[in-house]
Amino acid sequence: MPKTPAGTLYRGREGMWSWVAHRITGVVIFFFLLVHVLDTSLVRVSPEAYDAVIGAYKNPIMGLGELGLVGAIVFHAFNGLRVILVDFWKKGPAYQRQMLWAVGVLWALTMIGFSIRHLSIVFGGH
């Protein structure tokens, strides 16, 4: 067994990596939220100012960014429900690995559906 610093709680595998992903997606969503409140606040400046900035969200590069953002939100949402089940459901800790697989499957299904809809709007030359 390689020497590890005493006191470490990082044990790897599904439990740790889902926790890491939950943190990263959480921070990404939080910073977008700050920006999103600011861009929405432009409705109090003028309709033109709001439309100009929202127009920037509609180009294909931002469209891919929105796909990533929604992917982060959907993971954070489903994994958050898994965390709640781990904490409050009697059998939650025993099934945490299986529940992470369920999170992955539900995430993939949701994102396939959303990608088809969103990318056809963004790249469809509406």
Binding site: V43, Y50, D51, I54, Y57, K58, G63, I121
Partner: peptide
């Protein structure tokens, strides 16, 4: 219209 329908209105 998804994101393309978002504007001030």
């Amino acid at each position: 219209d998804g994101i393309s329908g978002i504007d001030f209105g």
